[in-house]
Each structure stands twice: as structure tokens, then as C-alpha cells.
Amino acid sequence: MDSSSSSQLEFDYVFKLLMIGDSGVGKSSLLLRFTSDSFEDLSPTIGVDFKLKMVTLGGKKLRLAIWDTAGQERFRTLTSSYYRGAQGIIMMYDVTRRDTFTNLSDVWAKEIDLYLTNQDCVKMLVGNKVDKENERVVTKKEGINFAREYGCLFLECSAKTRVNVEQCFEELVLKILDTPSLCAEGSSGIKTNIFKQKPLQADASMSSCC
């Protein structure tokens, strides 16, 4: 063997995060700000984009695989498979556009019910563009009430000014770390998907059926 398996395991968990919401709410901008700390007014995503980010949280080294999905209806059929195996989902809306908020319950929450494979998956509701406070049409209280109804974490942020950007991902990931079934998935993901190495001896917590 060229290298030991322990040296290959540079991180404790791999987590798959999914970003969903209407086109133009700022999903790609939020992801860009989080992964490279830059901001651009980006054109709509075609299909799906994907970025990796290494972070250390809760004393664990984590590799985050973040999927940024297209919001347009014509790409919707492409995205169903991206829900598979997700440990965390960011549901995003624009606080200055009422339709992006109402579509969370009319469209996106229904998609989650339809396609999500793990019922323990942690959901985070994010209201973006709070830098445009004078254009706000969705109140913070409405966001809080929605999050309460759907069992989501909740934050408002601005990808443009960096307000709460890191917190969106950190709070989501810390909640995932606090969920044993998701940690088991994230741990087994390292062994099977990343290095394609021979399977290690099955851990009792991972082999137990859900």
C-alpha cells in the first residue's frame, strides 16, 4: 500500500448539502460568498452547480459538498436525484420578492416531501437580501412562523454584505453533527464515495438498519 488509510482520511465527515429556491433569490451568490468570500450578481444557474468546502466545526474536520440547483421550472426534472442522500437542505427566498416566499410552501416544500430520502435531513430556511431593507416585503416574523411550521432552522442574510452568510452553513452543519443517523451517513460516505478504498470493518452504528 502506498499510504495508510488513516492518512487518506483527512476529514471526519463528508456532508451533502442542497440549496433550493426560486431563480434569482441568490443561491449561487450565497454559495460563492461562503466558498470564496467574493460576491457577484450571477446569471441563473443552468441545471446544477457544485462546490466543495473544507471546514472545521464542533472539533471535526468536515468536507461539505454543496449542490446549487436551478430554480427555473424547466430544469426541475433534473434536480430530483440531487435530493438523494442529502444531509442538509437550505431553502432560500428573497425578502424583497413575495412570490419567492410563497413558492417555498407551494413548490419547494412539496418537492422535499416527494424526493427527500432521509427524514432526519436538517432543513434551514434562509431569507436573503436583507441589505435591501427598504424594499423588504416579507417580514422576519413571517420567516420565523414558516420555519416553525415546517421544522426548519431560520436565518436572514445578505450574500452581498456577508451578514450571516457563514452562520447559515455553520448552524446547519452543527445541527447535522448533532443528528447521529446523519453523522453515520457522512462517515460512511468517506469510505465508499470519496476514496473508493476497500470497506473498513462495519461499525455497529452504521450497519444498523433505519
Rank of each mutant, 00 (worst) to 15 (best):
109 A>L: 14
65 A>W: 07
109 A>P: 07
98 R>G: 04
68 D>Q: 10
23 S>T: 14
63 R>L: 14
67 W>R: 06
112 I>G: 05
117 T>V: 04
29 S>R: 00
60 K>P: 01
145 N>G: 06
134 N>M: 10
20 I>A: 04
62 L>F: 02
113 D>G: 15
82 Y>S: 02
45 T>K: 02
49 D>L: 03
37 D>C: 02
143 G>I: 06
71 G>C: 05
107 V>W: 00
44 P>T: 10
72 Q>T: 11
103 N>T: 10
23 S>A: 11
41 D>H: 07
131 D>Q: 07
108 W>D: 05
28 S>T: 14
118 N>L: 05
91 M>F: 12
39 F>K: 01
88 G>D: 11
99 D>K: 12
51 K>G: 05
106 D>E: 15
120 D>I: 02
56 T>C: 06
39 F>P: 08
39 F>V: 06
56 T>N: 10
38 S>R: 13
84 R>K: 14
55 V>W: 00
105 S>C: 08
132 K>N: 13
32 L>C: 10
121 C>P: 12
100 T>A: 03
98 R>N: 09
85 G>P: 14
115 Y>S: 10
65 A>Q: 15
108 W>H: 11
108 W>G: 11
59 G>H: 07
57 L>H: 00
131 D>R: 11
127 G>D: 13
137 V>D: 07
57 L>I: 03
91 M>E: 10
64 L>W: 01
22 D>C: 00
54 M>V: 08
41 D>P: 06
113 D>T: 15
81 S>H: 09
145 N>P: 02
138 V>C: 10
48 V>Q: 02
115 Y>K: 07
115 Y>E: 03
116 L>I: 14
90 I>M: 13
117 T>S: 15
70 A>Y: 05
31 L>Y: 01
139 T>G: 12
28 S>P: 09
84 R>Y: 12
63 R>T: 07
85 G>W: 13
121 C>G: 08
101 F>H: 09
86 A>N: 06
121 C>D: 01
100 T>R: 00
94 D>Q: 12
132 K>L: 15
64 L>A: 00
66 I>D: 02
142 E>P: 03
